[in-house]
């Protein structure tokens, strides 16, 4: 039985919840069991945002990820807060444009992706989240890279078909990024 407990964290507005939603849909299309749980607060934007995503071959128990196997962080407070909670042998994905420090833990695999810079350079500055997702898919295999277009079409409304293409490109950018 394979279960991945993923925690994605950052500032509100970085697409943290959207990234989790995309992975959840991808898991659904692959016939996996899953849950997606956002943190919710009174603020509309700004503040911190995080979401728990569990993708498993077995029915999901608690939907709350307090000790992630996979941690994806898009700001320094999130790395500070969740680094120690990550399980030994886990993987931590860091947006290295926004987080200058390195992961201090030595019993986890750390991946540094300058996602915010790559997104700006590629002309889709709001899609650093999906670049991170691309790298995460590559290194964890928690969902497959095949069929990402179909999963994207579930989370990007038909009205915004143009956004689907750049989301796809962002995921590919992350997937193919070599440190």
């Amino acid at each position: 039985m394979k279960t991945t407990n993923l925690l994605i964290a950052g500032f509100g507005g970085q697409g943290v919840l959207f990234a989790g939603k995309f992975l959840a849909y991808k898991g659904l299309l692959e016939g996996k069991q899953l849950s997606w749980l956002p943190s919710y607060g009174p603020e509309m934007r700004g503040g911190t945002a995080n979401c728990s995503v569990i993708i498993s071959d077995e029915p999901v128990g608690s939907p709350i990820v307090s000790n992630p196997d996979v941690l994806m962080v898009m700001n320094l407070p999130s790395l500070d807060k969740y680094e120690d909670a990550t399980v030994a042998g886990g993987k931590i994905f860091v947006d290295s444009t926004l987080i200058e420090r390195k992961v201090e833990r030595t019993d986890v695999d750390a991946y540094y992706i300058p996602a915010t810079r790559l997104a700006k350079e590629a002309g889709f500055p709001t899609l650093a989240n999906m670049i991170m997702v691309g790298k995460l898919i590559k290194e964890t295999g928690m969902v497959s890279f095949d069929g990402i277009r179909e999963a994207l079409s579930k989370v990007v409304s038909a009205k915004h078909a143009d956004l689907l293409e750049i989301n796809l490109k962002a995921i590919e950018t992350g997937y193919n990024y070599a440190e």
């Binding site: 069991q33 899953l34 997606w36 999901v60 939907p63």
Partner: peptide
């Protein structure tokens, strides 16, 4: 409760 309301599942 808030968790059941906010979480997504298939």
């Amino acid at each position: 409760d808030g968790t059941m309301g906010q979480m997504m599942e298939p």
